[in-house]
Write a protein that binds this DNA or RNA. Structure first.
Lengths: 342, 342
DNA sequence: CTGAAAGCGCTAACAC
DNA sequence: GTGTTAGCGCTTTCAG
């Protein structure tokens, strides 16, 4: 059996109170006494029980984080960042993700409940399946939350996101500047607030330039490569074989863009010669596929950093610096090509 | 303040023991009494404190998992699986990953220590940076561990891995059958046991067919796309421009293969027309790039499943079914092409 | 500066 | 069946 603080106290010939003080490093202890306790700790190989400490201090020193899934480039970056930020302040995280099947919203609710049962000090939430109301309701019961990648009306102070509408505008501008006026879109899920924002920014900017996107050229995917493939196939089926009636394609994330390009290539269409493609996110692969993807960079890691720090500040009375705005940025690579005005 | 079991007991007019029994569902309770307690729980919105329970039962019902990083396709799948398996038995996981900088082995050791401090009931470990001895030593102190993706001599019973040597052989056979006799390799890190196993299987199979791979055609990467790109560039620089002195390239994982192909494409080399490429892992993108990657499928999720179940069985006296062998499998797609015997 | 003692909320004996 | 009680290992008053 592992030794306890009592053993340490006994061995050092002091009371448990004193032992506790030197272990936690807070409270006055005579240097000489401290040394004796330290000694006892070493010889016993004592490790304080975080559980007992938690019970008495009423905190496990941990934050819960919900992500719909661990897979994929996007969420990994988020977890990575959160974990790092937390360890810097000697806290940790428990994670929950959506289960295998069933309604995604229910899964999220369930995952959040799971985390609350675990008595997290706060929650970091990433989900586009949850309704605004779900989040507002949760916040009412548990104010220690931070919402990632979406802005919930009424909860602005705990929401952290890049400006996806601006991101959409950037993509549109890039295409417009290159002379494109006939475009198609592979969208993300329509209930995803971030997707809607970028789509809105994109369409609005296009519209301001007098460009309309007919609805049959907008296909909905779910952010996975497989859905990107299906969407591209649908687009091809719908718009007939080459020559395509559009010269540019905007995809709501890079994985779908990459998959779409592979479908296009299989159909004999070259990017960017026959079709320009703009992705979104700037995932790790964007720079490493052929052609390298022109995309809108979303620094989701930076967003996660701010959210985490803010939550740390609120939960632990810290004062970590948090920079609020993380601007999306267009990164030009090879998948967009200038086209002659007709 | 949240209500406690005492409040519930008082409201229901029973002793805490009884309340505890109905909450945990174990121990005899009269149905009528149980109903009263249940009622009290509802009206109070009572949630048992997992911390207090943990202190008294000496278990947080959680397993620790160490992965070098969250990012990337590979580790995400592992976490996904572990999380799911755990929730099925109402347990959860804490995760730790390597920090930003410094010696990767030290980071892993540090992460493991972090997990142990959190009093996990057991540890799932994924790291190719750790020495065999590190793991053996840890196991001596804490037998509740499971090691993923490598087989440590002396620790076979707690190690779970696909047969990477066989995986390497599969890749070699595929190339040999297609008539290739001049090959190049982009390897993973040489201290990674899984990489070494697949390389060994690959080279050995080639060797048995009388094919040798000159050392200047073996470049070492670190499994990231960026390293795959660098490796491919080095290969090109080393072996001059087209025509290449080799007709096939084996990459130790798919992300490096994808990046390598993009470099090749940029240099005007077509896959598979000018060069055949075989990847490894069958990551999510393998089927969705152009050309679709012929690769060796490693079902890392299945490996994680077995490991997790086995650890659950050991830690919680369960008896979940665990199937031991997960065989690698060649999946033929478009990146390999038959070549005429010279 | 230090020791004693009272919890933290729950579980598990143990009597009734 | 049910109530009482003694811990689990630590933190935190509170005297001394």
């Amino acid at each position: 059996m592992a030794s306890t603080i009592k053993d340490v106290a006994r061995l050092a010939g002091v009371g448990v109170g004193t032992a506790s003080r030197v272990i936690s490093g807070k409270g006055p202890v005579a240097p000489e006494t401290a040394a004796r306790v330290q000694q006892a700790i070493e010889t016993l190989g004592f490790r304080p029980s975080s559980i007992a400490r938690a019970l008495s201090r009423k905190s496990l020193d941990m934050l819960g984080v919900y992500v719909p899934q661990y897979q994929g480039l996007f969420h990994g970056a988020v977890l990575e960042t959160i974990g790092r930020e937390l360890r810097e302040v000697d806290r940790h995280m428990v994670t929950a993700s959506g289960g295998a099947c069933g309604d995604a919203r229910l899964q999220a609710l369930d995952g959040i409940d799971f985390l609350r049962q675990r008595e997290c000090d706060g929650l970091l939430l990433m989900s586009h399946e949850l309704h605004d109301d779900d989040l507002r309701q949760l916040h009412a019961q548990m104010p220690q939350i931070a919402v990632l990648n979406r802005i919930v009306p009424g909860l602005e102070s705990v929401c952290f996101s890049s400006d996806h509408e601006l991101g959409g505008r950037l993509a549109a501008q890039c295409l417009l500047e290159a002379g494109h006026r006939e475009v198609a879109i592979i969208s993300g899920p329509h209930h995803a607030p971030d997707n809607e924002a970028r789509l809105h920014g994109f369409l609005d900017t296009l519209g301001a330039a007098g460009v309309r996107v007919p609805s049959e050229r907008i296909i909905t995917g779910d952010f996975t490569p497989a859905s990107g493939r299906a969407a591209a196939e649908a687009l091809l089926a719908r718009c007939g074989p080459a020559p395509l009636p559009f010269s540019a394609l905007f995809c709501a994330n890079d994985p779908m863009a990459i998959a779409a390009i592979s479908v296009l290539a299989a159909a004999g269409l070259r990017v960017p010669e026959d079709l320009s493609v703009v992705g979104y996110d700037d995932c790790e692969f964007a720079a490493h596929v052929w052609p390298a993807l022109t995309t809108v960079r979303i620094d989701i890691g930076a967003v996660a950093t701010q959210a985490t720090r803010d939550l740390i500040n609120r939960c632990y009375g810290r004062d970590r610096p948090v920079i609020r705005d993380v601007a999306p940025e267009l990164v030009r690579r090879q998948s967009v090509r200038r086209v002659d005005a007709a």
